[in-house]
Design a binder for these strands. Structure first.
Lengths: 144, 144, 144, 144
DNA sequence: TTTT
DNA sequence: TTTT
């Protein structure tokens, strides 16, 4: 039975995306995304809680992330949850949960310039009109 | 800046919910949820991929899960991602990612009876009309 | 500023999809989808409320809808809201709101056979493995 | 069978919310929300398309909308679709589709001041920390 | 460990 | 006009 595995996030990048180019031609960008929530605790104090998400963007989305996304920027990310296992240095099985992005939309104003090495969206012509980027679905379904 | 952290799943329970009653009166139900996806690989073979999610339902939702949900049942789960850390037996820091449920809706037909210890929804009067259960938001924001 | 316009529905088809083939080669399927909710009124009586949605599925999704979807079937539909205007017979401007589907996933058990004219999913080989269908995004963005 | 009827929007208010106080004590805020999308047409020209949504926020959310939301502001709105009918001046049955908001989160920077009559979030202490507002669910289920 |  |  087919199911649904969908994640919708609005948050701020914790760092510039890091892109790796794999053998075989595929590329993948990784970045962290902070989603903040605020609530009042039992004493009535305002509390901020930040959840950090590991985002992975593949192929076309990786290139877009590399070109247009920067630390601090507010984005909408839609994707799915994937938990993979790996062996740590002590040969123990470990798990990491990531969000595989299907769509990224830039929100809010200009990103803060920072000293990132990414082509700053700040002075890019294309960046002047905020954009949505989507993964091509046929590629989305290749195993990785 | 407040963000959005939303997960939407449709899948099948991998086991009956397990409920713990905490000191202080709160209760929490845990279960796993499988979301299946299907795609064709490069050779054109149909491949099934199952993602397993750890679901946590607190307080009122825990009681509902205990009463109405059973292994195998198809449900819609809406919630948020939460990664927490703990120390494993070797005193290493480990991370586990869970979905904190805000809303659970029972889908599809009757669950298979199984030999679970849960009050089977199959012969429960209330279960005859499939239902949606929501977390009370004020409680949802208590720290845990 | 790019925005987000996303709809997520789980409901039952009110009728078999009706497909039109437009000049130019595109095709579009229309069907209605019922989403039910239940609540208790002030007197404590259980009330059912049904919302009816107009779903439009274009091109590849239209063909899938025609082949696999039938009246009564439970489906997950993801898409976006679109309101368009038209002139009624008295030349008055009227509005109709539709959901343009991006993805349709078949849920639950077999559809009831009915006497629909659609190729019943019931005895179709492909239907034995429940499936997800997605719109190709590049086509999704053609104006219509 | 319970279903799902969920809408997720990120867009900008087309006008300040208008609040009505009903007999019986309930209040409701209405505003329009624009969600923009951009795509390239067949000639490769960049096209902007704006969809306008009618948002209704009840009770507690209405008060929050009145206090904190202003024309132009970027918000995340989560809710459900509701189509209701009414009789127009010629006694014809007409339909209007609205989004009944369950949750509103303020995004982006400060709203533009405008000349609205709403208590501007601009110089409100509470507004300095962007916030999320949710409908109380038990009230959410009262018929209206 | 689920489902078809 | 659906479903349980």
């Amino acid at each position: 039975m087919a199911g649904i595995n969908k994640v919708i996030l609005v948050g701020n990048l914790g760092k510039d995306p890091e892109v790796r180019h794999l053998e075989g031609g595929a590329s993948v960008a990784h970045f962290t995304l902070a989603t903040n929530e605020y609530y009042k605790d039992k004493q009535g104090n305002r509390v901020e809680r930040t959840e950090w998400h590991n985002i992975a963007a593949w192929r076309g989305l990786a290139e877009m992330a590399e070109k247009f996304l920067k630390k601090g920027q507010q984005v909408y990310v839609e994707g799915k949850i994937r938990t993979r296992q790996y062996q740590d240095k002590d040969n123990q099985t470990r798990y990491i949960t990531e969000i595989i992005a299907d769509e990224i939309t830039m929100l809010g104003g200009r990103p803060n310039a920072g000293n990132g090495q990414n082509a700053a969206a700040t002075n890019s012509t294309e960046a002047e009109a905020p954009q949505t980027f989507r993964q091509e679905p046929e590629l989305d379904q290749l195993p990785f």
